[in-house]
Computed example of a mutant assay.
Amino acid sequence: MKKIINILLGCLILSIGVLILRHSHLVTGGTVGLSLSFSYIFNLPFTLLFFIINIPFYIFSFIQMGWKFTVSTILAVTIVSMLTSVDQFIPAFNMNPLAGAIIGGIINGFGLSILFLNKASLGGLNILALFLQKKCNWNPGKVNFVFDCLVVLSGIYFIGALKGMLSILSIFFTSSIISFYKKKIANSIQSEQDKEMYKVKSKVIAN
């Protein structure tokens, strides 16, 4: 129950961060960033694009990270999609891009860290970052930053150079906060692996 409450909290925090970035006309990394970029380009709902883009990554997650992590991730993506859909009912407003980059980046960093600590993610490149930490002990914050920069750079043509640089500033704050929690995230992933190994050994002994 505690895990579900924490995932809900992480999703709520992330949704606020995403809406701040959207109303600052900025993007972020991962599938969130791709979805924001595509929503600007095609004028389609972020919620729909975010859910569709994540589908291929669910398959990878199931194979490499296990069904529990995958289910938690699908739950998180679905909740964030639902929470950000309230944007259509919010009166239109614009936020200063610099303030949006800093505030949105920090909020997203805390939201993602909460999800990672509870063995969930927002799908997409988050899954790859956690997989590389699991297999290679790579810093998930730095890996996210590299991936996210590539996503932002691919969308600079549509949002402009200045807002592109501010978007990179935003993911710098996000990645810095994730890096701060990297040891706790690694321990969380390891503890889950230990539990799975214990269950497998117990079944083998029982048989």
Rank of each mutant, 00 (worst) to 15 (best):
P91W: 05
F158A: 12
K119C: 08
S179N: 12
S167A: 12
L48A: 13
A129Q: 02
S176H: 12
V18M: 10
S37T: 12
H25Y: 12
V86S: 08
L166Q: 08
V80I: 14
L44V: 11
I156Y: 15
I74R: 11
V32L: 08
F93N: 06
S113M: 02
V32M: 11
I90R: 02
V151Q: 11
I185F: 00
C149T: 15
V27M: 03
I52L: 11
A92S: 12
S191M: 14
Y58P: 09
E196N: 09
S85L: 01
G17N: 12
C11H: 08
Y181G: 01
N108W: 00
G29I: 04
L14V: 04
M95G: 06
F69Q: 01
M1Q: 05
L34W: 14
E192P: 03
F110T: 10
T73W: 10
F46I: 04
I90W: 01
F51H: 10
S39N: 08
M165W: 14
G29D: 13
L98E: 03
I178H: 00
G155F: 09
A186K: 07
L169F: 14
F173W: 08
K119L: 12
V80F: 02
M65T: 04
F62M: 08
L130F: 06
E192I: 13
V152T: 15
M165Q: 13
V143S: 01
V71T: 05
S170T: 08
S167I: 06
S72Q: 07
K119N: 10
N144A: 04
S175G: 06
Q64K: 13
F110A: 09
I16E: 03
S175E: 09
L12N: 03
T70R: 04
N54M: 04
M82L: 13
V86D: 01
K203F: 13
S188G: 10
G155T: 12
Y181V: 04
L125G: 01
S37L: 07
S175K: 10
E196P: 02
T78H: 06
L117D: 01
I74G: 06
Q133R: 03
A161L: 04
F110K: 03
S85V: 00
Q88L: 02
V204T: 05
G66Y: 12
F172T: 13
S81P: 04
L26T: 08
C11E: 09
V71W: 15
K182T: 14
Y198F: 15
A206T: 07
